[in-house]
């Protein structure tokens, strides 16, 4: 059951990204282009997603356990560390350069061209190496 949920959640997440327009890098860059021709769509994507999560998360987390597992796997670190400043700062630069963050990069993997395959491959390799070096 939990594996089926994982697969379906992944599919639904990507369909959401697609319908919202976020698999189009120009719409993402259009959102980040505050001083030029601005496309506010990304704000509504986050707004729609947050509307659902903000309302339901508190009720779910209050439960003793999730439906298919014995425990919730939630982050425990609450400190503002250098990682939480430097990491997102670097991520934002990469995001702004092409208009791809990890979700749309992976969801777009088979949508044509070698560039996206190279981008996603390099991105994942960078994640795995960073994880190995820092842990």
């Amino acid at each position: 059951m939990k594996y089926l949920i994982s697969l379906l959640s992944g599919i639904l997440f990507a369909i959401g990204l697609g319908i919202s327009g976020m698999m189009n890098t120009e719409k993402v860059k259009g959102f980040l282009d505050l001083t030029g021709d601005w496309d506010p769509s990304l704000a509504l994507v986050m707004g729609g997603a947050l509307l659902v999560t903000v309302i339901t998360y508190p009720f779910i987390i209050k439960k003793k356990s999730p439906m298919c597992e014995t425990d919730f796997s939630l982050p425990t670190n609450k400190e503002i560390t250098k990682e939480i400043i430097i990491g997102p700062a670097l991520f934002g630069i990469g995001w702004g350069l092409i208009g791809l963050c990890p979700g749309p990069a992976i969801a777009n993997l088979l949508n044509g061209g070698m560039a996206i395959v190279i981008f996603t491959g390099v991105m994942i390799a960078s994640m795995v190496i960073t994880d190995k070096v820092t842990n």
Binding site: K2, L8, L12, L17, L44, V52, P66, C68, F72
Partner: peptide, 21 residues
């Protein structure tokens, strides 16, 4: 479409937390 897509992303995240934690 962006708002609807966002809601679907939210539902996906909720399902993953509700069922799998």
């Amino acid at each position: 479409p962006s708002f609807i897509g966002g809601i679907l992303i939210g539902i996906s995240a909720v399902a993953l937390l509700y069922f799998n934690g």
